[in-house]
Nucleic acid binder design. Sequence first.
DNA 1: CACCAATCTGAACGGCGTCAAGATAATCTT
DNA 2: AAGATTATCTTGACGCCGTTCAGATTGGTG
Lengths: 210, 210
Amino acid sequence: MSEMTQTATTDARPYHHGDLSRALVEAARRILETDGPAALSLRAVAREAGVSPAAPYHHFKDKGELLDAVAHEGWAALDAALTEARRKAADGKDRMTSLGVAYVRFARDNPALYRVMYDCSRDKDALPEQMKEEGAYCQVRNTIDERSGGTASPIDLELATIAAWCAGHGLAEMISFKQFAPLKEALGGEEAFLRGVFEHLGMFAKLDQA
Amino acid sequence: MSEMTQTATTDARPYHHGDLSRALVEAARRILETDGPAALSLRAVAREAGVSPAAPYHHFKDKGELLDAVAHEGWAALDAALTEARRKAADGKDRMTSLGVAYVRFARDNPALYRVMYDCSRDKDALPEQMKEEGAYCQVRNTIDERSGGTASPIDLELATIAAWCAGHGLAEMISFKQFAPLKEALGGEEAFLRGVFEHLGMFAKLDQA
DNA sequence: CACCAATCTGAACGGCGTCAAGATAATCTT
DNA sequence: AAGATTATCTTGACGCCGTTCAGATTGGTG
């Protein structure tokens, strides 16, 4: 009957069918990448994983909880992308811009995942815990603190971090709109476009003048 | 055939049931305000308007087209809010900030409508035409141009406008997250919080230095 | 080996978007 | 004024969705 079509990414196959929680999250990401968020139904995920529509309910309370798990992986991936960008970026002025560019690129390259990440946050009226401890948000704040030489007040530091995060998110949501295609071309590519916008945002105007 | 079911808010009750297109859009907005975007099904809209589930299909190609009409009204309302804010704002430095605050407030006060507006845009990978001609986006650009004394290059002007728009949109999406509640309180209210973030964004850093 | 709890299936419920066929009523033609 | 036409609305159906529940299956434990 069941012909072992499991991905079996890990060696742990604890129970009856295999590590289904894992398999479901992976199936969901596969569907997201190939067919987009609109096609991401619980039944489709179960189908993709080769189980019945009711099976997921033994691992997740409901569809939202499965999406939470997907979003969690998304934030981890974003963390990794920002860490990498920060490592590579030259010190000084444009380190923050590089971080911003990396953020927007992540969103552009994983649009469906990015969407799920924020949809889940919106449902809870809160960004994930993950961000605060040593995650993406914290990296942005550290980069800003570094840049200001550690002299910024806690409140200013927080405001600047929020400002930067909002700018990045806003740009990430706009980047794929057709209207901006001519401007991108005029500037010689997407990276130049992004850097241009971030320069205009001048997220350090206030910190620098202090 | 049908000549673009125009708004015709006037006295025209053209057909059998009344001006159903209008009634449907109004029903949709009512549902949005009271029960949120998740409850906005075509069937619910038809129910609210007192017609059968299939009736809307004589006025809109599908659900998406009905939402487009709702979004269209949303953008018009946003235009109005920004016009009002621009009229009231003091000249000079913080005129742009006032515009930003008005934008974010609109999103906070009409969260479901704001969501529909951007969801429709995303489906088409484009912001609505409406914005370009004499709408909200144009107002932002004009305000920026004014501020820079008309000396900014077309490209810089466009980049600055995009930057400001993205910042506003990003902040609008974040404003309701619980994490920021303590900071809002520390600053003595939401308006102070918003102005604080916008100051840090310093959207004129580049234009001013030129 | 027998039992238990965890895991999965199958069938069902109500709600959804959408469509085709028919009923109804306003408009147009003559 | 009467019939034809056209736009409008209803009824009923289809397939998909999220979710639940009773029952089958199976791995681990005593």
